[in-house]
Nucleic acid binder design. Structure first.
Lengths: 324, 324
DNA sequence: GTGAAAGCGCTAACAA
DNA sequence: TTGTTAGCGCTTTCAC
């Protein structure tokens, strides 16, 4: 196996200088058609591929974006990541992916890896690590769905409205004894409190009492199921549950069916995956595509140094999807 | 905003040579405790982070692995990618992710991007591009679930057994009029034909007639739903359907419920996501974790030049998960 | 329209 | 135990 050809090899093969080859490849300066052709032929002949690493080193830009999320295996993140990745690809950026699995130390390691890899920017969709760690990095950063007041640009959806709409949908169905299950706690500190506020305001507007249960996100499905089972069994006259993510809602739904109770459920996220598997689930849909688009746009602007100073929160509207 | 400190800056601050700093940071050679401390202090003080790009250029190894899959938004791939990423992280590799969205041209572009980025190896989970494109690259490659006879190492699960087990489960339930829906066609040419063979052999062993429908993977959910609806409506005495992925199976299940027909369904993949959302679905479970582990192990071995010549197929067993 | 030379930030021979 | 020097593969002044 022979070594990869380099610029110099192409230059020799084409009988020109390395500079000329570089110019042809990057379309810079004036080149005669004859030379251009000779160079292209040589590139073809040697099956030459430019070494992006060497290029990056010189121009100190890698076209690499690090994205940090809990895990691609959760539909919400999987779908978000797919969108982000597609948009970045169109703009010629490559994506370094980091699944933190909600472990702060892993996230910490990743951040260092990303910095060492000279990424041009970072998208954070996690909460384990303090935002300071990212600010220190002096890197363009956009956070998704994170509570970071003014220090970093944040894109999120309107969780207050989401909580409110979910609760109002249950009320509209004539349910009054409604509890809120706040799953995925560590994962989304902000969304949790906002959703809860929406739920509470909606309930109070009708003079109804509130009750929120918290279920740790780190728990596995078995454990969540057990907790939900106990909770539901202890509420003999429960009529509705609002759960802050669709997976937990799906678990609740199956428990309710098995217990043969009449309890309405509203979930949260509205991913394509879950709504396809469970079209009967009523849920609050986060605008994943729009969030991804905005995030990427903002990040690329920050990278190109527009809007550098302005850190603000962008809040996108959610919608209700009624179960079939 | 001051420029990032480099090795030289640290050297100056510590009053030593760049070489010494490099040695301290990489734990090479013998260094006096005093110097070591001085260097570490300087690193701390300047908040220095080594430039991995420069290092990569020198050692011509990037610790970057490219992984090419249709999309993180599909649970099977999302879960597979999360596993792969975790295992690679443990071995100090970073992951460049590529969602091809089943578009051959995008995959082609990605491959070139990966080559230019000097990745140390590639994992392919797609079928759009011919395997030749990858072989040409002269790069360590492992393919997942792909039909590539002898030219590249392949990891997959036993789709023949999967098809057989699925069909036999339906037969065990007393169903005899069973059709096979081969979804996700382009996505997995190999698995399709193997599953079908398993289905056919199981049916023929009982002297029953076979019928396989193909549904293009590129279709959206609406279209798939329509096709399935028509298909089911046209079979007045259908008793069972084996579908080659869980998402399509979920769609079928909801149609059947709405039509109030008595048709048993068996799906394929058995992802955590779908089995959580739809615990009542009977499905064939692919050993995602084991596949990821084997794939990563094989790739790292190829990268370190062990087993370089041996390209073979590794087939892992599937299991049946009965619906609740 | 083209080339020679310097250097991006790092590491590894080779000296001392 | 430490420093000097050269060079990884590329791009870009500056000169012709």
């Amino acid at each position: 196996m022979k070594a990869k050809p380099k610029l110099e090899d192409v230059a020799k093969a084409a009988g020109v200088s390395p500079t000329t080859v570089s110019r042809v490849l990057n379309n810079r300066g004036a080149i005669s058609d004859k030379t251009r052709k000779r160079v292209h032929d040589a590139v073809q002949r040697l099956n030459y591929h430019p070494n992006e690493i060497a290029r990056s080193l010189f121009v100190s830009k890698t076209h690499l974006i690090g994205i940090i999320f809990p895990s691609t295996s959760q539909p919400f993140f999987g779908e978000m990541i797919a969108q982000i990745e597609n948009l970045l690809f169109e703009k010629n950026y490559k994506v370094l992916i980091c699944n933190t699995m909600d472990q702060a130390d892993k996230e910490k390691n990743y951040l260092n890896m990303l910095l060492a890899s000279q990424v041009d920017g970072v998208i954070i969709g996690t909460h384990s690590l303090g935002i300071d760690a990212y600010l220190q990095a002096q890197l363009p950063v956009i956070a998704i769905d994170r509570d970071a007041t003014g220090t970093v640009t944040v894109v999120r959806s309107d969780h207050y409205q989401g909580g409110r709409m979910a609760t109002e949908e249950l009320l509209r169905q004539g349910r009054t004894r409604i509890v809120h299950v706040n799953g995925m706690h560590t994962r989304r500190s902000l969304s949790c409190s906002q959703q809860q506020k929406g739920y509470e305001d909606a309930m109070e507007a009708h003079g109804l009492p509130c009750k929120t249960y918290n279920i740790e996100s780190s728990l596995d499905i078995r454990a969540k199921k057990q907790l939900l089972k106990t909770m539901i069994a202890s509420h003999l006259n429960l009529e509705g549950i609002f759960l802050s993510d669709d997976i937990t809602a799906a678990i609740a739904l199956s428990i309710i069916r098995k217990m043969d109770r009449d309890i309405a459920v509203v979930g949260y996220d509205g991913t394509t995956t879950v709504t396809t598997c469970l079209p009967e689930l009523t849920t609050i849909v986060q605008p994943i595509r729009a969030m991804a688009k905005l995030t990427v746009d903002l990040l690329l602007k920050e990278i190109s140094n527009e809007f550098s100073g302005i850190k603000r929160n962008y809040v996108l509207p959610v919608t209700l999807k009624k179960g079939e």
